[in-house]
Design a binder for these strands. Structure first.
Lengths: 340, 340
DNA sequence: TTGTAAGCGTTATCAA
DNA sequence: TTGATAACGCTTACAA
């Protein structure tokens, strides 16, 4: 049998479709007896309202589009988990569309969302802003997550990468590191660029006169391994490593340890993100509460959809330095307490 | 300005809406000149078809509903990643709805999908089958992932937990373990139950006469730690551990090692899942290719939606034993090669 | 309090 | 090859 429609219910309850709609949506201009009849009929028929038709009529879909690049494990799930949590709290569905980093999939994915979502959450750390601006349907409210730059006209939420990097360097210097190497992320990635920027600024500030050392990476574990091998062949006096993300920090850590280098005694290591593995390897890192970012993103978008005006347009998520074994030198706590 | 509709395009191109629809959808019964005019007009107006209206008219939404419980990190993202990959390949969107383990959210979530998706993928390892069957809209094609039992009328995809458990035990016995402890998962979880079942069967088969040892757990790391503490206080001759998932295996491993127990020499440990961390900790485990399950699930559902009949109704995903350091005894490879 | 009917933005049928 | 027009399933004026 085909699914029952509102007309079937109306027929069965011997009322008009309008009354069915009113009764089922809890409007008060309907007699109790009528409402009861309608509800009974709906139950008997196993009637479920057709969300598509409903949203066409109401011109709102109660769904949010989520456009993400190919993300690495934890980052993806945490982000979506946070979004989902807040979305279901607010009564919205999430419509997912991964766009693969390359290609011109972004515009396509965004267009296809028109008419099925009320707003979109876009994460595109690699897409140039003008391309993004062009691809975004002008009428569809959007919130940008980690966009390469703050598009002035679009609300956004970003990680405060510089603050995180500064905290990490400050801490490394605080436990006595001087020649600190930065394993950088991919150049086209805004987070990577900002973390490097934070590194340079922090070095100038906390370790003035000491020349910064950069090793180019790509956020993959192998890059950290490569950096470690490089150090093993020519140490250049490096006594600290700040990697642009945890995976590279982990690669570096494992390779150094395997070669017999004492961490943190000879070389201290800090990462960025606080992936679950960081805790197991006791890696010092800048914690990014990804789920929280997802929640905030949804909350802000829904607020806007529901007419609440925003005070802040561009929000920054503050990472939190988590000190663990890879930097926990003998007297680190004490030194940290003394402000450096 | 409001979004342009098909009527605006029609007006601008001086044709009927029917022609616009035909032209834009690539039907061939439209003159080239007309098509050009329509396309030009559409571009000028920045016209994007309204997916909701389209799907109402076509009575198909090009979207799949995904109903998942609260999953732990890697499992969730891998599953969704696999689904998304296949879905975008096939031209479908994913509509996400986490249902939280408790509550009667399942029926609600499922109902709300009516009219916005063409089929649903449901994962509900904890929901009793009759409740599930009742909640599933009878007209909406569904594919069950890890359902508690194979509902005969519903296609499903499951992990072959028994096979995985048997392989693990066989391997442990093969490297010389005899008194093997099983750290079980939650009782209401079908995977956990099947893994325990596999453990019992395999013990009877590969270590006949040796009494099985069970420690109740809940898939959380802490349960593994508790099991380890239990062993530390009373070893009972345990020389092998098979945990129902990696997290518990990891908890056990860390706690034993911290207490100075040599793994694998004194106690060998194997888990289940092959979470990313397993590789770092060199944990032997049964690999479940989660993304692959997601892909298969989408592929099968879409096939069905598109009229391809299925030969297999209930499919089992075969885990693969991955031997690593926590069981790699001196002569394990050799013994494994000799078939035991 | 109820019913009739006009939308919402498409596609598809049927004539022309 | 085109255009009117009736669906699709719902909500909501407007009338009664």
């Amino acid at each position: 049998m085909a699914e029952a429609t509102i007309r079937d219910v109306a027929r069965r309850a011997k009322v008009s479709v309008a009354s069915v709609s009113r009764a089922l949506n809890g409007l008060n201009n309907v007699r109790q007896a009528t409402r009861d009849r309608v509800i009974a009929a709906a139950n008997e028929l196993g009637y479920v309202p057709h969300a598509g038709a409903r949203s066409l009529s109401l011109s709102r879909a109660n769904a949010l589009g989520v456009v993400l690049p190919d993300l690495h494990g934890e980052f993806f799930s945490e982000l979506v988990r946070g979004m989902d949590r807040e979305a279901s709290r607010r009564g919205y569905f999430l419509l997912l569309s991964n766009m693969h980093a390359e290609g011109d999939q972004a515009p396509t994915a965004l267009r296809a969302m028109h008419g099925r979502v009320d707003g979109i959450l876009v994460m595109a750390p690699h897409v140039p802003p003008e391309m993004l601006e062009q691809a975004l349907p002008s009428t569809l409210p959007a919130l940008l997550i980690n966009a390469p730059v703050e598009v002035p006209t679009r609300p956004s939420i970003r990680i405060d990468n510089e603050a995180g990097a500064q905290a990490a360097i400050r801490h490394l210097v605080g436990i006595g590191c001087r020649r600190i190497l930065h394993i950088a992320g991919p150049e086209e990635n805004i987070d990577a660029r900002e973390r490097a920027e934070g590194y340079f600024k922090a070095m100038a500030r906390y370790a003035p006169g000491i020349e910064p050392l950069l090793f180019p990476g790509n956020f993959e574990e192998e890059a950290g391994e490569a950096a470690a091998r490089d150090m093993l062949s020519d140490r250049r006096g490096v006594d600290g490593v700040f990697a642009a993300n945890d995976m590279m920090a982990i690669g570096c850590l494992q390779t150094l340890r395997a070669a017999g280098v004492q961490v943190p005694d000879e070389v201290a290591i800090a990462g960025f993100d606080d992936v679950p593995m960081a805790r197991y390897l006791s890696l010092t890192t800048c914690r990014v509460r990804i789920a929280e970012i997802g929640e905030r993103a949804v909350a802000r978008l829904v607020d806007r959809l529901e007419g609440k005006i925003e005070r802040v347009l561009n929000e920054r998520h503050q990472p939190e330095l988590v000190v663990r074994g890879t930097t926990a030198g003998a007297n680190s706590d004490e030194m940290a307490e003394h402000g450096l």
